[in-house]
Amino acid sequence: MTPVESAERALRRAVPWIATSLALIAAVYVRALAFTPAEAAQGPAQKIFYVHVPSAWVAFLAFGIVGGVSLAYLLRKDPRLDLLAESAAEVGMVFTSVVLVTGPIWGKPIWGTWWTWDARLTLTLFLWFVVLAYLVLRGAVNEPERRARYAAVLGILGALLVPFIYASVYLFRTIHPMPVILRAGGPTLPGAMLATLLFSIAVFTLFFGVLLYYRYSLARLADARADAAAERRDA
């Protein structure tokens, strides 16, 4: 089987997985909206939590993958690692955007304001900026080898930056206290809510994995096609 054919097969194999993940997300929606009790003090809007938190977890997971794979690329110089990092960044961007959209929609009814510079949202915002910079940088370099190198450097530095931004926001908030963030149900979640949250985290992580695999296969396919075309030209 040629590289092009095996990449195409990978794509086809992934489609049922995508369908399954989407169905599971629908199940999460039904469970969260209809079968999980609302939190008395915050009202139904608190349920945004079941989409916001798993998306945030995935966003940071994706970014961790970008950082780790970027380091691996600089050490091993395998172009497939570069494609994996690129895929993780793009898919991670989508999840990060969902966090930034659902965050304010949750914040407005709960805290009365669309945006507060709280630790999690601020950290996510700057994560978004770093991933954006990563994707813009990739778009601005034509040569594949240099693009991969530059992106890897930015990916690693970006991953190093995350704990410092967290520390900055944390320090800022301890000195300038803000309204206490209401947690979903106090320090410990009641059983039904915890179960929904864990279910949602599992489903969204699976969804991320499937999208990542598909996006990576797309990149491999494009690469394989470009190689095949170059070979035909040289022949």
Partner: peptide, 19 residues
């Protein structure tokens, strides 16, 4: 309980649409 179901719907729809 506060009547803020509209926000819940908006967030779920927005997230679902993006994905």
């Amino acid at each position: 309980m506060p009547e803020n179901g509209g926000y819940m719907v908006a967030a779920y729809v927005a997230a679902g649409a993006i994905y």
